[in-house]
Design a binder for these strands. Structure first.
Lengths: 223, 223
DNA sequence: CGGCACCTTGAGTATCCTCAAGAGAGGTGG
DNA sequence: CCACCTCTCTTGAGGATACTCAAGGTGCCG
């Protein structure tokens, strides 16, 4: 029996470079909240900050992640145009949110959405929270029981569906982001994509532009 | 570059042996709901069934899991005495719940907990749902970024805390259940436990009875 | 005491990770 | 407009962790 050493750290997370400079605009979609621009790699909110606002992606994309004490990063989810994020189990954010690209958000106080006195708003907040739960559960299923190929295939199919571009994908995130989302290394993600291309299931035109040539087969690969 | 074959199934899940014979009692804790006895390995509810009830564990324990098309099983969570489960993102259960041992539950209609007209009840339901979300997120973190030792250590510490027996654990679940929860194989779980014992961090007295000899060290191992 | 289910241990292997180098893409400045 | 720089991605080689297959042990129940 080989006795494995007790612990092995992997890849480290480095804090985002510059502090935030939020430009808040008050025009546009006043009904929901104020518009906010966040540039690439800037933080929308950080772990530990009070979680009293919700955010809706108008343009761009956001990653939500947590960092282990030794620097390993796990991306919990990506938020794409139309998605609402910022709903968390406690008063404080447990995850950090950063813009993947230059991003436009709409911000609202959570109370504006989930006031107990307003049945409709309350239901909407509930639906959003339950959607978070659903996605988190699906994510856990992916991370727990799937091979690298299955994870990547699943990721591509999911992204294609959510980005709404049919079989053509423009990925807003880097390989490192994908790796940290799927619980793999950047090299494994890259190799797996190459392999999917060699097997004819996808075609890459630049590393962020992916065409799903056999969506059916990819879906089956998801297991 | 070695081209991995595209898919490898692992361990298969076999449906639970007998159908259900629920014995519902109407005494005890009438305020919350009816009492229900479920014997070992019997289903509390199955994937696809309507999710209009919530359950509270009085005695025993429950596993909630999902099964991939090829039979791999991912346990989403274990529910221990005091825990409430059955809250799901949709009208239908997405997970299956089975008793780990002979178990006593209290059942209530979900509407009895989360009526929109009742602020307190609504808040309680919200808290429960958010707790599910929190645990699911933590689970994803464990599955995505941790080594086998870290997963097992984390599991033991979490269980010890939730079972409330201080440093002495009586595990209600089998090695297979632990493996399917942690995204490992039964052999890896077994080896890791042995290794933790050899390194003096735990002491096993029978495979379900575990004493945490160095809880501090175990906690640090969780990363 | 025997049978059965579960757990442990072993040996060999596959998958994925690490370390390292090279290729591609995008941006800046001469 | 091209050269150069940097950042990211890809590819390769080797190694470690966890898996598979297999056998033996342990405990529980009849």
């Amino acid at each position: 029996m080989q006795m494995q050493p007790i612990l092995v750290p992997r890849r480290l997370y480095q804090a985002p470079p510059p502090p935030i400079a939020r430009q808040v605009e008050t025009d546009e979609i006043r009904l929901i909240g104020v518009t906010m621009h966040v540039s690439r790699d800037q933080e929308v909110f950080g772990e530990g900050e009070p979680a009293d606002q919700v955010y809706k992606v108008v343009r761009g994309a956001v990653r939500g992640f947590r960092v282990l004490s030794d620097g390993r990063r796990q991306i919990c989810d990506f938020y794409l145009p139309g998605d609402v994020f910022g709903i968390e189990p406690s008063d404080e954010h447990r995850i950090t949110a950063e813009a993947l690209t230059d991003t436009v958000l709409v911000v609202a106080r959570r109370s504006a959405l989930g006031d107990e006195s307003d049945g409709a708003a309350s239901r909407r907040l509930w639906a959003l929270a339950m959607n978070e739960l659903r996605r988190s559960q699906d994510h856990a299923l992916t991370l727990g029981r799937r091979s690298a190929s299955e994870r990547v295939a699943n990721f591509l199919v999911d992204m294609a569906e959510r980005l709404g571009g049919g079989e053509n994908l423009e990925l807003p995130m880097s390989r490192q982001d994908i790796a940290d989302y799927l619980g793999l290394t950047i090299e494994t993600v890259s190799r797996t994509l190459t392999q999917l291309q060699v097997s004819g299931m996808i075609k890459m035109a630049g590393c962020r532009s992916i065409h799903l040539r056999k969506p059916r087969a990819l879906t089956e690969l998801c297991a």
